[in-house]
Amino acid sequence: MKLIIAVIKPSKLDAVLDAVTEAGASGLTVTEVRGYGRQRGKTEVYRGAEYEVKLLPKVKLEIAVPTDICEGVVEAIKAAANSGKIGDGKVFVLDLEKAVRIRTGETDEGAITG
């Protein structure tokens, strides 16, 4: 099993949700976060005053998947979140040691699939 963590632009959320569902992911968690990467924030103007926004709004997705569909889900995220501009985000893939569905007691792949 794998845990996919993706940090993307909020404007790409709906497209990414559709893409990962189509790729076989049966569930995910979405969190609104703030951060920066290479772009180190941006400068904006408000009422004539210039100010720097250091932490930009992002969306973090956490998706537990069976190993066999992991690459397909990662590719779906990459395709749906890509605008070709700086700040599109990152995808991280980690090994997932154990998963338990609390309601039924199912473990591992049984707990993360439909």
Rank of each mutant, 00 (worst) to 15 (best):
64 A>C: 06
32 E>Y: 12
43 T>A: 06
82 N>I: 01
96 L>E: 02
34 R>G: 00
30 V>T: 12
50 E>F: 01
89 G>Q: 07
76 A>L: 05
33 V>G: 09
53 V>D: 06
56 L>Y: 05
39 Q>C: 00
48 G>R: 14
94 L>A: 13
106 E>N: 08
91 V>N: 05
98 K>C: 04
51 Y>D: 10
52 E>F: 15
90 K>N: 12
52 E>N: 14
90 K>R: 11
77 I>G: 00
36 Y>T: 13
56 L>V: 00
44 E>T: 13
38 R>P: 02
78 K>P: 00
31 T>C: 02
88 D>F: 09
94 L>I: 05
41 G>Y: 08
97 E>D: 15
75 E>N: 07
59 V>H: 10
64 A>T: 04
66 P>D: 15
89 G>C: 05
36 Y>A: 07
61 L>D: 13
32 E>H: 13
48 G>C: 11
95 D>V: 01
62 E>H: 08
67 T>H: 14
86 I>S: 04
34 R>E: 07
79 A>Q: 13
97 E>Q: 15
72 G>I: 00
74 V>Q: 06
105 G>D: 13
92 F>N: 13
40 R>G: 01
50 E>A: 06
109 E>Y: 05
49 A>N: 13
93 V>M: 05
76 A>C: 05
70 C>T: 10
40 R>E: 15
100 V>A: 15
58 K>F: 09
87 G>T: 06
35 G>V: 01
102 I>E: 15
46 Y>G: 02
71 E>K: 15
94 L>H: 12
74 V>T: 09
66 P>M: 07
86 I>V: 03
36 Y>H: 15
51 Y>N: 08
51 Y>R: 12
90 K>P: 07
92 F>V: 01
88 D>Y: 11
55 L>H: 15
56 L>P: 02
87 G>A: 03
100 V>S: 14
102 I>T: 11
55 L>S: 15
49 A>H: 13
81 A>S: 06
58 K>N: 09
105 G>V: 02
59 V>A: 12
88 D>L: 07
88 D>W: 05
59 V>T: 14
106 E>S: 02
106 E>C: 03
101 R>P: 05
61 L>K: 12
30 V>L: 11
98 K>G: 12
43 T>H: 06
109 E>L: 02
47 R>F: 00
93 V>W: 04
69 I>N: 13
63 I>M: 03
94 L>V: 05
40 R>K: 13
106 E>W: 09
35 G>T: 02
82 N>V: 01
76 A>P: 07
82 N>R: 14
105 G>M: 10
109 E>M: 04
44 E>H: 13
71 E>V: 06
96 L>K: 11
54 K>M: 09
54 K>V: 03
64 A>I: 00
53 V>P: 05
36 Y>I: 05
87 G>K: 13
42 K>A: 10
73 V>G: 04
95 D>N: 12
49 A>V: 10
38 R>L: 12
42 K>S: 08
98 K>T: 12
43 T>I: 02
71 E>L: 10
79 A>L: 11
34 R>H: 08
82 N>S: 09
63 I>K: 01
99 A>I: 01
71 E>F: 11
76 A>N: 04
30 V>C: 08
60 K>I: 01
65 V>P: 14
96 L>W: 08
90 K>Q: 05
86 I>Y: 04
82 N>F: 07
35 G>D: 09
80 A>Y: 05
